[in-house]
Write a protein that binds this DNA or RNA. Structure first.
Length: 674
DNA sequence: GAGTTTGAAACT
DNA sequence: CAGTTTCAAACTC
């Protein structure tokens, strides 16, 4: 019963985007495009758009989805829906369809298609910002229209399948914007730019994921091409190809249940035939790899991508070279998958899988205890359960009490739960419940522990070394009796020290006591204040000297203004990037971080950008309205942060801000290599 | 394995 | 938002 109801939702959502695809695919649209001399111009402008970032207003077609992007599965879902509608829809000529049709027989088709799709995704992201619709439209349009209109070029492209990937994009567009590689780079860059402009950081995150997804999809393309397609059997060649990428995308997408659901969806459907979840979870990793891969890897990719440097590297490769990507990517994934650590990973890193992976990695060194546990899970429990299993009696495994549910995984045999609803069979119920919980607390499934960026952010000073641990419990614990010395304490359990976010009493956390943490902060603050004060004084003195010596050139700015003028460094170099990264109004609370981390960020390449995106989530989580217990959160008001640039120059108060900024940060932190 | 303790999650 | 209840994991025996 419930299932039926909840099933309706997804269906409707999927249908919603259909109009778009129809629009894109409609003969009228096609016709207009053929007639219009602007076609080439459009694509050309797109390249310019990337470089110049001067985006025109989005076409109405892409306007509607925007609101959705921030919700739930965001644009991924939208995209997914669109793609899916295209792929599964009534045979309208969509980008994918067209390509599939043309390349149906090509073995490497998947890769190509994925690439193309990726390029399309990026535009969508752009459009989500409402900044680069032209590009978006162009991409989709050209890709959708060209196949039918220009079969020969594509056919040729198909012939050299190996080169195809790169050629195809140019072909589908107009191929005059430079080399495919360069275009691709531009597209990536643009996407990233856009990502940061996005009003919602989550989008950025998503975008990152999106990119990741492309490599992931490639990875799966191979697997699916062999395994999934047969599994689906009934479907024609086009469907699997079209669907698979989407699913992958959803998989990669940051951990909302929906996505996860989508992850399971396909497998689930297949499973519904042979009870796959069980197979998957019970995992004989190798044997079931093909089946498990889809759900598992998606999740893992999230975690890995977000967290591990390896992943990032692989992502980078993704950008740089398509060929190596696969190797790198699969390489990083495979082990994880083989161990069936998926659930484990998710265990803590729910919505943001990113955390978990790092956590595992980090804690390996950091926390013997926690790691041992995981280790045991991974090593010992592989056959039975690579992850902890629940024992729920009353919650039906549909509440956060249930570790499986909280981790975003289905309960499996090893679980001792009673009346369990957390199974693929009740997928809809699970999703609905999850939705409900998320509506109540959007971060309910977010990773509980995030790596603190303190270390990276403070790397300019010694502060990092003063931080007891590089990771903290996002929300903090509330222990009264355990003194944070038992696993009752989530901080302890996670192997992280207590922080300012904790409301624990008598904290004796072995990984870091709260008071110690506070003390550290205070120290750093004092030092910071002191340094700033000295610098200020120096500068003021210098200024006065300059004024005396060169009255003309130097405008007699008030001391602070002068400093500001100096800082502009901050504001000049950093501000633009900040805007670049965060966008004007969006997540203003992020600005400070940008400032602080700017130097680091500026040095970062695409890869770095990826990291930033990754880190954005944790930070958002930090500043999110969940339970603003922490003084930190209370203090960090957007307004303050927003004015941080000039403020940072102004005396101790500014110092305070600085400090706050440091305490917030999560960005650079996720970089495992720190 | 049963019972107790604990603190998060959920509820009011 | 604070207090209470429910819940399941962690812990003890």
């Amino acid at each position: 019963m419930d299932n039926e109801n909840s099933q309706k939702e997804p269906a409707s959502k999927i249908e919603t985007p259909t109009p778009k695809s129809k629009f894109e695919d409609s003969p009228v649209f096609n016709f207009i495009n053929n007639l219009s001399p602007f076609e080439s111009v459009k694509s050309f402008s797109s390249a310019q758009t990337f470089s110049s970032l001067s985006f025109t207003s989005p076409p109405p077609v892409f306007a509607s989805p925007h609101p959705n992007f921030h919700r739930e599965s965001r644009f991924f879902r939208c995209q997914h829906s669109v793609d899916r509608s295209k792929a599964l829809g009534d045979g309208s000529v969509s980008k994918e369809d067209g390509e599939v049709d043309l390349n149906k027989d090509a073995t490497l088709e998947d890769d190509e298609e994925e690439d193309t799709e990726t390029s399309c995704e990026l535009p969508q992201i752009l459009s989500s910002d409402g900044q680069s619709p032209p590009h978006h439209g162009e991409d989709i349009v050209t890709q959708a229209l060209l196949p039918p209109s220009d079969p020969p070029p594509l056919g040729e492209a198909n012939e050299d399948s190996s080169m195809n990937r790169l050629q195809k994009i140019p072909d589908s567009q107009e191929g005059e914007n430079g080399t495919p590689a360069s275009r691709r780079l531009m597209a990536d860059a643009a996407a990233e730019l856009l990502v940061f402009r996005s009003p919602n950081d989550s989008e950025a995150f998503t975008c990152l994921v999106d990119k990741i997804s492309s490599s992931e999809r490639r990875f799966f393309a191979r697997v699916k091409h062999h395994d999934i397609i047969p599994a689906n059997g009934s479907s024609n060649d086009n469907e699997p190809l079209a669907v698979a990428p989407n699913q992958l995308v959803s998989n990669v997408h940051r951990g909302s249940m929906r996505r996860r659901c989508l992850d399971f969806e396909v497998p689930g459907k297949r499973k519904k035939d042979d009870d796959q979840q069980t197979v998957c979870d019970n995992n004989k990793p190798e044997s079931s790899s093909s089946k498990c891969v889809v759900p598992g890897i998606g999740l893992h990719l999230n975690a890995i991508a977000m967290a591990s440097s390896n992943t990032k590297i692989s992502i980078t490769h993704e950008y740089s070279s398509s060929g190596e990507i696969q190797n790198t990517f699969s390489g990083s994934i495979t082990p994880v998958h083989s161990q069936d650590t998926v659930p484990e990973t998710l265990d803590h890193a729910e919505s943001q899988p990113g955390e978990e992976a790092p956590k595992a990695l980090v804690f390996e060194e950091l926390i013997p205890d926690s790691f041992q546990k995981k280790k045991q899970v991974l090593e010992g429990g592989e056959g039975e359960s690579s992850c902890k299993r629940c024992n729920c009696k009353k919650s039906k495994c549909l509440k956060l009490y249930c570790e499986c549910f909280a981790a975003g995984v289905y309960c499996i045999e090893p679980c001792s739960c009673v009346d369990c609803f957390n199974k693929p069979i009740h997928e809809d119920t699970v999703l609905a419940t999850r939705k409900q919980i998320e509506s109540r607390n959007p971060l309910a499934f977010a990773p509980k522990v995030i790596r603190n960026s303190d270390s990276s952010i403070m790397d300019t000073s010694d502060d990092a070394s003063k931080t007891p641990a590089s990771a903290r419990h996002k929300r903090g614990c509330n222990c009264k009796k355990s003194n944070c010395l038992k696993k009752y304490c989530e901080c302890y359990q996670s192997g992280v020290g207590c922080s300012i976010n904790c409301r624990c009493e008598g904290c004796k956390n072995a990984f870091g006591r709260k008071d110690a943490y506070l003390h550290t902060i205070m120290e750093s603050k004092q030092e910071d204040d002191h340094e700033t004060y000295e610098k200020r004084t120096e500068k003021i003195q210098q200024n006065s000297k300059e004024v005396e010596q060169n009255p003309q050139p130097s405008t007699p700015l008030p001391p602070y203004r002068h400093l500001v003028a100096h800082q502009p460094f901050l504001s000049r170099n950093k501000l633009p990037p900040t805007q670049f990264f965060l966008g004007a109004g969006s997540s203003s609370f992020r600005k400070p971080d940008c400032d602080v981390t700017q130097s680091v960020n500026e040095k970062k390449s695409l890869e770095t950008v990826t990291e930033d995106k990754t880190e954005i989530m944790p930070d958002i989580l930090n500043t999110s309205p969940i339970k603003a217990n922490s003084p930190n959160r209370k203090r960090v008001s957007p307004a303050h942060i927003g004015s941080s640039e000039p403020g940072s120059i102004l005396g101790k108060r500014s110092n305070g801000r600085k400090l706050i900024l440091r305490s917030i940060p999560a960005f650079p932190s996720l970089n495992p290599n720190q």
